[in-house]
Each structure stands twice: as structure tokens, then as C-alpha cells.
């Protein structure tokens, strides 16, 4: 008789039931309820108020800016992630452990500090502040600052996803491609990339979710200029602080939908391509 068929005695079954109930109850109150509250609060004054507050000029500008920041920072971090994973999973060299630590570093830095460091570099009193001022280049309180802070925050996601997978896959297939006469890029595009595609997509998904949702780091470098340097999370904050609760929650529903979509795709990827994604601990922050 298999273990699963075995019926435990009734006191144990009650214990199991209570334990399960406790866990499900905790998850519901702690995770489901905040999600529900976002949608309910957004629709408190009806669908019309909801739609019109999303349709406002500032909200649309915030959506555009959020997409722009993600479109720039995610591909850059994908390139970095692939290069870093190739380096970490395929070569032995001095300082490798240190490099690995630096790749993970942004995960253990407060988002506020991630923004702060760029203010210290490019702000009016920063290292390059005077020079930038003289040449009329704005980084802080402008889009480049938002992009930089977002890149810093999301830098490890793709690399983190790829390194363990490529390490567990080993280099046999790539070596086989070399012995069969493939050049470096042929090997990369015909063997390496197809083998990591789902993990790469997974990394991009997580990287994007964070890039679009980042608050602390961009809040420091943004300057909160309505319509120009406010991303969606910043727009939520500003409306909330102006007591425009429906407006704040309305923009928040868009971000919540993005989160739900991310979770759905993530779950789908894990379900269909679990083996090709390898171990998926949550990617740091």
C-alpha cells in the first residue's frame, strides 16, 4: 500500500485540517485581501469615475513614461545578464566569486540608496553635477536618472535566473557545437540561446515587473514633476498624498493587473517549462 493511500488516524486528520486552514486563511487575509481592496477602492465611485481618472493626461503620461523606462532598462539588463551568465557559468577566473557578489549587490541595497547614489553622482552637488550643469544636461529629476535607478535595481534579475540554469546544463552541447565546426556566434545563437530561452523569458518577466513597479529608487531621482518625471507608482503616490484616493487606486489597479499578468505568465512558464527554467527561488527583491 502506498503512503498516499494510508488514512491517518482521526486526531491527526483534524490537526492536518487545522494546519491547512490556518495557512489558507493567512494567505487569504494577508495576500488576497490587499489585492481586493485595490479594485474595490478604485471602483468606489463607480466605473465612470474610475475610467475618467485613468484617462487623465497625467495618468497617460505616467503610463508612457513607465513603458519608456522599462523598454530601455530591460534590454540593457538582458544583455548584461546573458554576458554575466556566460562568464559565470562557463569560465573559471580569478575574482569570480567577487564578481558574483557584485552582481547580487543591488538586491541587498535599499531602493532609496539605489536612487541616492545617482543623486550623489549626477545631482547639482554631485561628482559630475557642475560639469553636467555647464553643458545643460539633466540626469537627475529627468528621464535618464529614472532609467539609471531602474537599471540598478533590476540589474541582477536576468543573470540570477540564467547562471544556475547554465551551470546545471553544463557546456557539453556548446563543446559539441565547437567540435562540429561552429563559430562563436553560431554556437551562441544555435545552441546556447535556444537552451536558455524560457529561463531568459522568465528573467525578463521578473525584471520587467520590477522595472515598471519600482518606487523607492525612482522616487529619489524623479523630482516628482507631474507629466514629465512621474512613473505610474509615483503617480499613485502623488494622487494619494493629494487625497485623490479613487485616482490613486485607479492607477494602482493597472499596476495590480500587471502584477497578476506577471504571476499568470510566470506560473504558466513554471508549469510548462519547469525543467528549462531550473530552480526558481524568488529573484531577490
Amino acid at each position: 500500500m502506498s503512503r498516499l493511500d494510508r488514512q491517518p488516524p482521526w486526531p491527526r486528520r483534524i490537526g492536518r485540517g487545522l494546519l491547512g486552514l490556518l495557512a489558507v486563511g493567512f494567505l487569504s487575509v494577508f495576500l488576497l485581501l490587499p489585492l481586493a481592496v485595490v479594485f474595490v477602492e478604485a471602483l468606489r465611485q463607480g466605473v465612470h469615475a474610475y475610467l475618467s481618472s485613468i484617462g487623465q493626461h497625467e495618468a497617460l503620461a505616467a503610463i508612457r513614461l513607465t513603458l519608456l523606462v522599462a523598454v530601455i532598462s530591460v534590454p540593457l539588463n538582458v544583455l548584461f545578464g546573458v554576458a554575466a551568465a556566460w562568464l559565470m557559468a562557463r569560465f573559471e577566473f580569478r575574482g569570480k566569486a567577487l564578481l558574483g557578489a557584485f552582481i547580487d549587490l543591488p538586491f541587498s541595497v535599499s531602493p532609496v540608496i539605489s536612487g541616492l547614489v545617482y543623486v550623489l553622482l549626477f545631482g547639482a552637488q554631485g561628482w559630475f553635477g557642475p560639469w553636467l550643469g555647464a553643458h545643460d544636461i539633466k540626469i537627475i529629476f529627468a528621464v535618464p536618472g529614472l532609467v539609471l535607478a531602474t537599471i540598478f535595481i533590476t540589474l541582477p534579475f536576468v543573470a540570477r535566473e540564467l547562471i544556475p540554469l547554465m551551470q546545471s546544463q553544463g557546456s557539453d552541447e556548446e563543446e559539441a557545437a565547437r567540435v562540429l565546426g561552429a563559430g562563436g556566434w553560431q554556437m551562441f545563437f544555435r545552441v546556447t540561446l535556444p537552451n536558455i530561452r524560457w529561463a531568459l523569458l522568465y528573467g525578463v518577466l521578473l525584471c520587467n515587473a520590477r522595472a515598471m513597479g519600482e518606487f523607492g529608487a525612482v522616487s529619489v531621482v524623479s523630482g516628482h514633476i507631474r507629466g514629465l518625471t512621474t512613473t505610474m507608482p509615483l503617480e499613485v503616490e502623488m494622487r494619494y498624498n493629494e487625497y485623490d484616493y479613487v485616482g490613486a487606486f485607479a492607477v494602482a489597479t493597472l499596476l495590480a493587473l500587471l502584477a497578476l499578468l506577471t504571476l499568470a505568465i510566470k506560473t504558466l512558464l513554471e508549469w510548462r517549462y519547469g525543467d528549462e527554467i531550473a530552480a526558481h527561488a524568488p529573484g531577490g527583491h
Binding site: 557539453d172 552541447e173 563543446e175 559539441a176 557545437a177 544555435r190 545552441v191 535556444p194 537552451n195
Partner: peptide
């Protein structure tokens, strides 16, 4: 290769 290293 020992484990064939076929391109999966």
C-alpha cells in the same frame, strides 16, 4: 560525448 550532448 559520454552523455551524447545532443542538442535537445
Amino acid at each position: 560525448f559520454q552523455h551524447y550532448a545532443l542538442f535537445r
